[in-house]
Design a protein around this nucleic acid. Structure first.
Length: 359
DNA sequence: ATGCATGAGGT
DNA sequence: CCTCATGCATA
């Protein structure tokens, strides 16, 4: 009950092409594993918590959980290291098992044209009726081990074969790689990503295209395995609120769009327009809202133990009167947050600030 | 711009 | 049940 469900408002406004060009600091932590479990380097788990966040019962609960788990806390830490090795290479190498989305009538090249063609992009909702929305994300870590081959230039030539400690970003190693004739991972350099993200946003706005438009237009590029993306993703790309690998995977795609869009911008083309077939009624998903007090408790728990076991989660859920699944997902999302290039942990600084240190 | 959620692929 | 890439719904 602590969480309230809100009714849907049918406002469907998307962000206007007026987002502030925030300044971001290039930040990328080489070994994300080591940072995710210790919000308190000092070792004092209660530093910050005692500040009233966890006043009483929760503090005890946290302690309880902590000491009971202290032993097997680090159970699976190392697992993810090899995960990020291969991200989705929409490109082509991956199995074409991706459910091709059906973008309706609106054919090709509606990628920009602020003059009106944009109306044609209106209904991009992939499958208006599909019960389980077919999302076209191309996350295929399919060929995990055989990453010997490369990708054609445009799309990230081999998104990330390294990391862990992202040795690639190591000055020395980088130099070595360059010297070896191998491409100096220009695409994986956090600085480059940041620079591109900013340029992208700037030029996108110049074109008078919204984030949502870009997302939809991507499908029109008809690149193998590349479908539409949501406004959310475009936004996150621009604000570097994505994981390093995700950024690397998306960059070539967005770059391709940008070039194509600017090319078309010159050819002041554009035919009348196409009918905006609205998808019509759909089932609206309700978004759970965790109240502030509960959220604070969760954060306190998270500081102590970012990866509680299923039972712990259940216990926490009961204490906070939340559904277990809600709590589990909350922890998952919290963990993902930590991995973003720009940690958006400070909602106040919407412009995104320094989360990192120079590179 | 961001919170909560889904689902594929893995372990 | 996790991680990750993404998305819908919302503030």
């Amino acid at each position: 009950m602590t969480m309230s469900m809100y009714s849907t408002t049918d406002k469907m406004k998307m962000s206007a092409p007026s987002c502030f060009p925030g300044r971001y600091s290039p930040s990328y932590r080489s070994s994300e594993q080591m940072r995710r479990c210790m919000p308190n380097p000092s070792g004092d788990i209660f530093a910050g918590i005692n500040d009233g966040i966890l006043s009483r019962a929760e503090a005890l609960a946290a302690v309880d959980i902590q000491k009971h788990q202290a032993q097997h806390v680090h159970s699976q830490m190392p697992s993810q290291i090899k995960h990020d090795v291969m991200y989705h290479h929409h490109s082509m190498s991956g199995p074409p098992q991706r459910p091709l989305q059906m973008h309706h009538s609106m054919d090709q090249l509606d990628m920009l044209d602020p003059t009106g063609s944009m109306t044609t992009l209106a209904p991009i909702s992939e499958s208006p009726l599909t019960p389980t929305h077919q999302h076209l994300h191309g996350s295929y870590h399919s060929m995990n081990h055989m990453m010997s081959h490369h990708h054609p230039g445009t799309l990230s030539g081999h998104t990330a074969g390294h990391h862990g400690h992202s040795a690639v970003h190591h000055p020395v190693i980088t130099a070595a790689v360059a010297a070896a004739g191998l491409h100096p991972d220009t695409d994986t350099d956090p600085r480059e990503l940041e620079a591109f993200a900013e340029r992208f946003k700037q030029r996108r706005i110049k074109l008078g295209v919204t984030q949502a438009d870009v997302g939809k237009a991507l499908a029109n590029l008809k690149l193998p395995g590349v479908g539409a993306l949501s406004q959310s993703t475009i936004c996150r790309f621009e604000s570097l609120t994505l994981s390093h690998n995700n950024m690397i995977a998306l960059k070539p795609i967005l770059q391709a769009w940008l070039e194509e869009a600017e090319a078309q911008a010159k050819n002041k083309r554009r035919d009348p327009d196409a009918p905006s077939v609205l998808p019509a009624g759909e089932k609206k998903r309700k978004r759970t809202s965790i109240a502030a007090p509960e959220k604070r408790s969760l954060e306190a728990y998270f500081a102590v133990q970012p990866r509680p076991s299923g039972e712990k989660i259940a216990a926490i859920a009961e204490k906070l009167d939340l559904k277990k699944n809600v709590v589990r997902v909350w922890f998952c999302n919290q963990r993902q947050k930590q991995k973003r290039i720009v940690s958006s942990v400070t909602p106040s600084m919407t412009g995104h600030g320094s989360a990192g240190f120079g590179y």
